[in-house]
Computed example of a mutant assay.
Amino acid sequence: MQGTIDGFRYGAVTPVAAYLMACLGGALGLRCVVRSLHNAHSWKAGWLALGATSIGTGIWTMHFIAMLGFQVEEARIGYDVGLTVLSLAVAIVMVAVGVFTVGYRGATTGALATAGVITGLGVAAMHYLGMSALQLNGTIEYRTSTVVLSIAIAIVAATAALWAAVSIRGFLASLGASLVMGVAVSGMHYTAMAAVSVHLHGTGGAWTGDSATSLLLPMLLGPVIFLLLAGVVVMFDPLLVMGEGTWDRSFARHPVSTKPADRQPDSAFTARDAAAPRPVATNSGRQGPSSTTGRRRPR
């Protein structure tokens, strides 16, 4: 018996919420990667790790928020907790491989191709591993051609995202790239879901429970809180608060040392400016440099 699939149980609520989470994860990831590349004195590995975790968590959260709207009308749905958590780990690790590859090797053709394929396959693996966690009284089947298309979309989207991470610098440009990433990731998810069909083993009655919702909502709480905290970290980073140009002049070119002997003067003038002679007025109305003793130059 074929099950009747409804991927939009709550209408547009779950697709829109899923898209926003994908955009949030992508935006945070892009800004973290930009931050790691912009200043050689920054904690590069830490920013890359935070960026990879943000992107991976955003993709995973997008997937399972979208799955909140998935139902088979003739059967109840549950999820295996172990496989669900494992899919999150796979997403973060595979995205991290791609992010660290381009973060240290740059946006070369070879690095982007390798990292894009690995990350795209990781995103697809996260999706289908998450689908394997789905439990119901039946068998989930996939249309091969649509599965291949979804994997291709994942690879292209991952490659474009990694290119944007190391190539785009401006905040507005990063924001636009994250919106495009959200479209690509959501498109990959719903393309993959279009390949799904369910063959039921027996009639389980109409939908009467919300076991999937009661399980997924608590599990989604942690990743959502992480993304919000990561957003706070990124928003209060000087590179974003002060602007990239100000950061370059004040910090990237002249990083402030924590040693007292290496501290820069607190005033707006440098030590050289302070030591330079100051102009003084002469009888002719012109200004000239004063001597080191402060006396007026003889006429």
Rank of each mutant, 00 (worst) to 15 (best):
G202Q: 13
Q71W: 01
I65S: 02
A22M: 05
W163Q: 05
V148S: 04
S42Q: 05
D237M: 08
G106T: 09
G245N: 12
T293L: 14
S36I: 08
V34N: 03
A27P: 00
G176Q: 04
L20R: 09
G122A: 05
L50T: 04
D6C: 07
L172V: 14
Y19C: 01
W163N: 04
A12Y: 08
L28D: 04
G245F: 10
G243F: 04
V224I: 14
W47D: 02
L220S: 06
F70W: 06
W207L: 13
L172I: 13
G130H: 01
Y128I: 04
M235Q: 14
W207S: 13
V117A: 14
L240V: 14
G78F: 04
R253G: 10
A66P: 01
A49S: 13
H41Y: 10
L129W: 02
V166I: 08
G56K: 01
T53N: 06
G7H: 02
L228D: 12
L20H: 03
T282L: 10
P279A: 08
M126I: 08
P255F: 06
A45R: 14
T108K: 09
S174A: 09
G204D: 15
S214Q: 15
A177Q: 01
Q2T: 08
D248S: 07
A160S: 06
G245L: 10
T159C: 03
T108W: 09
V241A: 15
G25D: 02
G130E: 00
A40C: 05
A96Y: 01
V117L: 15
P277E: 02
G138Q: 02
L149S: 00
G46C: 04
A275R: 01
A133S: 13
S145L: 14
A206I: 09
G176A: 08
A164W: 01
Q71I: 04
G69K: 07
F8I: 03
A17K: 00
M188D: 02
M126C: 06
M1P: 03
G294A: 03
L134V: 13
Y79H: 11
W47Q: 03
L216H: 03
G120Y: 01
R249Y: 06
G243N: 08
L136W: 07
S145N: 03
E74Q: 11
V232I: 13
V72K: 03
V97I: 12
A194L: 08
V13F: 12
I5Y: 01
R296T: 04
G130Q: 00
A164R: 00
I151N: 01
G120K: 05
